[in-house]
Design a protein around this nucleic acid. Sequence first.
DNA 1: TATGAATGAGTATTCATTCAT
DNA 2: GATGAATGAATACTCATTCAT
Lengths: 224, 224, 224, 224
Amino acid sequence: MNKPTETLDAQAAWKAPQQGRSKASYERMLNAAEALLVDTGGDAFSLTDVSRVGRVSIGSIYHRFNSKDELIHAVHARFMDRLSYEQTRIVMLARSRSKTPSGLVRAIIEELAEFLKNHAATMRPIMLRAAHDRVVQDRGRVAHEEMVDSVVEELIGHRSDIRHQDPERAIRAMLGIAYAAIARELGFGMAEAPQGAADWEEMKSDLGEMAARFLLIPSVADAV
Amino acid sequence: MNKPTETLDAQAAWKAPQQGRSKASYERMLNAAEALLVDTGGDAFSLTDVSRVGRVSIGSIYHRFNSKDELIHAVHARFMDRLSYEQTRIVMLARSRSKTPSGLVRAIIEELAEFLKNHAATMRPIMLRAAHDRVVQDRGRVAHEEMVDSVVEELIGHRSDIRHQDPERAIRAMLGIAYAAIARELGFGMAEAPQGAADWEEMKSDLGEMAARFLLIPSVADAV
Amino acid sequence: MNKPTETLDAQAAWKAPQQGRSKASYERMLNAAEALLVDTGGDAFSLTDVSRVGRVSIGSIYHRFNSKDELIHAVHARFMDRLSYEQTRIVMLARSRSKTPSGLVRAIIEELAEFLKNHAATMRPIMLRAAHDRVVQDRGRVAHEEMVDSVVEELIGHRSDIRHQDPERAIRAMLGIAYAAIARELGFGMAEAPQGAADWEEMKSDLGEMAARFLLIPSVADAV
Amino acid sequence: MNKPTETLDAQAAWKAPQQGRSKASYERMLNAAEALLVDTGGDAFSLTDVSRVGRVSIGSIYHRFNSKDELIHAVHARFMDRLSYEQTRIVMLARSRSKTPSGLVRAIIEELAEFLKNHAATMRPIMLRAAHDRVVQDRGRVAHEEMVDSVVEELIGHRSDIRHQDPERAIRAMLGIAYAAIARELGFGMAEAPQGAADWEEMKSDLGEMAARFLLIPSVADAV
DNA sequence: TATGAATGAGTATTCATTCAT
DNA sequence: GATGAATGAATACTCATTCAT
């Protein structure tokens, strides 16, 4: 594994077996690899480790995957699939909490933050892997864009409240900034959870406040 | 170098020679290691590479440093020293550009962003290294806090314009968020520079706007 | 299969099924193995390859054969059987082309060369295999001796024209030399066909000439 | 080492150290590899074997060579160098034994055969390696051509005695055939020395006879 | 009988670190 | 001090063979 795959696996080369012993061993592999990903905080585990933890032979792993990279991509893909459903619910949950524009924006930030926090343990090493791995980067970008689109779709309904020339661009900018701040707070791309992250609630609140002020209030330059 | 040092090198074990051939060879080491850090996008270069690029023997490297980790820490320390002076100038430069609170906030964001962009090539792999390396993390945190403190010191003079219960906390929150957004845009912690980062000016402007509105305008909740 | 079998499989351990689906699958195995032998230029293909190419399961292969070696021996045996008939015709064809001793010798060389050339694609990797595999060596030797015997039988009828103390030995020596030269020209024992083998016709003609002069003309030592 | 190098190493990547411990260890590597080549009858030995037999570490081998292939090429090159001097002496030795054309041709065959026999133990596995390895093939071809050229140069002085339209071509054809026959007799390209090779003297004599008759006597077709 | 998933010993290669010169 | 050769543990990957279903 000198260089992680540089391009998207057009068609994933591996496929999940559907039943029985075979499926059980397949899942032990993925579970072991995911656990090691989380525990080591990166991909610096050996296939021997996967073999031991998952109680599968090295050969079995290579029976399913052509390389360690492919195994990691399978773990990633499975993780992204799990995320997918929850991610679509962010806007829905936020909407159910508030109907005012300001409240909605804050709720979206809050739900997004909680969603990411719930999966931080796995996202941390995945983001680290993304540093070198185009496949992981690309899949991550797609998921991120889906999330952004769903928020835009919701907030654009309030476009008249958004004090920007281009409301959609403002929403996207705000989300990019909020995502970056949350990811940093949660230590995405770090091997371990950050230590001094005591102020999670405060941080969410600040971020919601900032987002709401940014979108919904006329520029200070106009005011002053 | 499976595991980067986990704790602060209480006292750095290496010291720079003060003169002559010795100093020249010492600097070739550091320069080679830094160049490789940037070129490979991480610490995945071998000491043999350093030896070749820097025209120093492996033995010389181990004469100065007890391990590859220490060499990298020296590179990091030297880099942080170079940054230190420029970082202190951020506030000064911003102040010279605008005196109104709003303009000052925007100028600070702008200067911070440009400062980070100027050093992005080196900061990218360093942030990646920080993922596993407590020493790098800690030094980075210290520098970051110095930067934050200097901004706080400047903006706190305008505390009456800051529409928050705790103006200092608001400033710190804003800076954390802004820093995260800039770092993400510049691809800190990634092996390569991000591809589609076309909208640098827009992004700086959005961030400045967001910071100004966050700090200087009453909450939308109060208003609505 | 680190070490090919060192001794003759006293009794071949496999047997061909006589009918139906079973026979079809058996032949797909042999065909796949033979094709891979030719394509890879040696035995460096895996049973997984045979399984894929021949659309037979690994289990099926092991149902018929106790090892990869045995499979290869079966391919070899089948190939030698196909050769057997054609080989017996070499002398017959040569005889029909010329009745003079000189013409007959040349025709035999010509027919032998063409016969080997027709099967060169398969003989190349088989000779390579023979380098390590006593079973293949021994079977090859037997077939070779049959060919030599048939030529001796034919030419010995012209013994009075052969200018040697021991005409039979001279014939055998000549055939050994001719066979070696043809095999070298055709790249037997090489992974690929030789590149610059442009002069096939010339080579056959030289060899025929040499054989004829060797057998049918008194020694130069006698003459000079 | 899935595929031996396909092209000539333009410049050999390894170089022999000139003195001391370093040279001793370098030679132990080459000697061990050569011994294993001969003993195993091919390149099917592991670098661990080389490490054990040569009392050098795996790392030392990779300090000198970039791959197992390169090590084998170095062994090959060293062997070819040793051969080079002796090969140039073939013609000289033959000339000192006989001045008549017929005697000279026989002496050349005899010397060539003895020369090859003396190095058969190493040439056997090298020829096997050449089956897959273009570098070995190419170097071998060059050496072979040098030998052929030196013989042509000698015999062409007797061109008036050579009963062929194109004497040089006849000499080259004869040498190609003789070389093939000797190589086959000596088991070049086989893992082990041939068993039933009882008739070495006879074979040399037959080959010399055949060569002499081929070159020096008018065609039987002309005579009959 | 047929299938193909599972096994695991074996191989080439890398690289931080040590140490003889 | 300086050099760079030597070390060897660690790792991804292959493939003949076994065996559960």
